[in-house]
Amino acid sequence: MTTLLAILVLGCMALVFGAILGFASVKFHVEGDPLAEQVDAILPQTQCGQCGYPGCKPYAEAVANGEAINKCAPGGEDTIKKIADLMGVEPPPLDENHDTDNSPKVAFIIEEDCIGCTKCIQACPVDAILGTTKQMHTIIADECTGCDLCIDPCPVDCIIMIPIAKTPQNWQWDLNNIPVVQLD
C-alpha cells in the first residue's frame, strides 16, 4: 500500500512538473538563434561573400556555431571587436587573407577599356552594375558596397576601386552615435 502511494505521489508530482515545463517551453519559445541575429546586426550587410559564405546572414549563423570571427573584410577591426565583445572572447586580428584597409571604396569601370562581357554583372551581389552584352557597363555608385567581387571576373582589368573621400556631404553628422556620458 505504501509502495503504491509512493509511486502515485512521485508520478503525480512528475506530471505536474512536466506540465509546468511544457507550458514554459511554449511561453519562452526562442525564435531562431538569437546570437546569430545579434551577430548579423553587427555585420556591415555588404553581402560581399569575402568571408566564404554566401552573405552576412549565413556568416552570422556560422559565427554563432563557432566559426572564426575575423573573416569580415568590409567590417574590419571595428566589427571584429564588436563581435568579440558580444561573444566574450579576445578580438583576433583580421584574417590575413584580407586587406586590412577597410576605408569605404566604390568600384569604377574604365569605360574605354570595357568590352561588354557582362561577367562583372553576374558577380555583383547588389546589382549595382548597369550594362548588357557588347555594350559598355557602368557602376551605380550609390548602390555599390565596395565589396570588390567584380574585380576578379573582369577579363580586361578595367574595374578599379576608388576610395571615397570624406566630404561634408557624406560625413556622418549624427553626434548621438557616440555615447556621451556625464562624469561626476
Binding site: I20, A24, F28, H29, V30, D33, G88
Partner: peptide, 13 residues
C-alpha cells in the same frame, strides 16, 4: 530547466 528556458529567452549571450 525553467531557469534555462528563461535565460535562453532573455539573454542569449
Amino acid at each position: 530547466q525553467f531557469t534555462e528556458m528563461v535565460v535562453h529567452k532573455t539573454s542569449a549571450n
